Amino acid sequence: MKIRELISQYCDKTEKKGNGITIYSGTATEPIETPELFAYMDFLSDEPSRKIWHSDDYRMYLTQIDGKITVYEHVRLANYRIQLLDLKEKYGEKKEMELPDLADAFAFASREHENETRKSGTPYISHPMDVASILLKENASHELVLAGWLHDLVEDTDVDIETIKRRYGEQVADYVDAVTEPEELRQAADGDKTQNWKDRKEYTVRKMTRANSEVKLLSCADKLANIRDLISDIRMEGEGFWDKFNAPKEDQEWYYRSILEAFATGPQNIKDTRAYRDLEECVEQLF
């Protein structure tokens, strides 16, 4: 059954909230089946009294609790994420390992990036710290924040995706893999990073255009952390700082504007997130 058919069949009340949420409610005497493009959240459900589903495609979630049907439709992505977090807070079991997991990811990333520095000379671990912080402020999932800590490991160290999967789970590994350049492009970059810079960036723009909202948000946090550092470094060192990059300023502008467009494209766009708006402002400030 499609979600609109379910709403039409079971819901006789509609309430619009000022924060961009529409709530449909009604009753159903029989258990309902999972609607198309929805996923059943078994870890929040308590059969037979409570069932909960969510849909990233529609930015909705659906509950059937003690015979009452409620559909929450979200105009803005942020509302959708916040409401899902509220559901997890209300019905989910507390994950006592979350903070230790984050601490372990920080220690792991710190160790692997130990001998690396940013172009400014600062320790490289400052960048994953910034990315994770941006994601935390977006109320991103635990897995996405972990991926923020770990997102550069495959490209910049000897750590592979299988190691990340074994230590932190398949979802975290999938997020990291989604923002990692393919091996053939990385191998080409080992020879002359300037020569294939455009190929690598064009690949990233194409991939982010088709990515889901979580992957776009992870990539956006990465780009936002980078451009904030760049603005600060140019303020301190002057326009000559551009000479440290593999592409000139005009090519960098093309890339940042193209990736912004990719993040804003399609039903999985992230235009309403703080990270996207901050990145947009930084691009206008820098270029």
Rank of each mutant, 00 (worst) to 15 (best):
R76M: 14
S55R: 03
Q83C: 10
P35D: 01
E89G: 11
T70S: 13
I69N: 01
R50A: 01
E30H: 10
A28F: 06
K16T: 11
R76C: 06
M41V: 10
P31M: 04
L85E: 14
D66E: 13
L62S: 09
I23R: 03
Q83I: 00
F43I: 08
S49D: 12
D66Q: 08
G67I: 00
C11S: 01
T63A: 09
T27G: 08
K51W: 09
E36L: 07
S49N: 14
E33N: 05
M60V: 07
G18Y: 11
K17I: 13
E73I: 02
Y91S: 05
M41D: 13
Y58H: 15
R59W: 11
G18H: 11
E89I: 12
Q83S: 15
L84M: 14
R81F: 03
E30Y: 10
T29H: 09
D66C: 07
S49P: 00
Y61F: 15
K16L: 07
H74T: 01
E15F: 03
K88W: 04
R50Q: 07
M60C: 15
T29Y: 00
E30K: 10
Q64R: 04
I69L: 06
I52C: 04
K68L: 06
Y80C: 01
Y91T: 06
E89A: 13
K16E: 15
T22C: 09
E15K: 11
I65S: 04
H54I: 00
L85T: 09
P31K: 11
K51I: 06
G18I: 12
T70C: 13
Y40K: 07
A28C: 15
N19L: 02
L84N: 09
E30N: 10
E15L: 13
W53Q: 01
G26P: 02
D12W: 13
K13M: 10
L84D: 03
S25M: 05
T27N: 10
T34H: 03
Q83N: 14
K88F: 05
Y40G: 00
F38P: 00
G18T: 12
A39S: 12
F43D: 12
V71D: 01
E36Y: 05
K88S: 14
G67F: 00
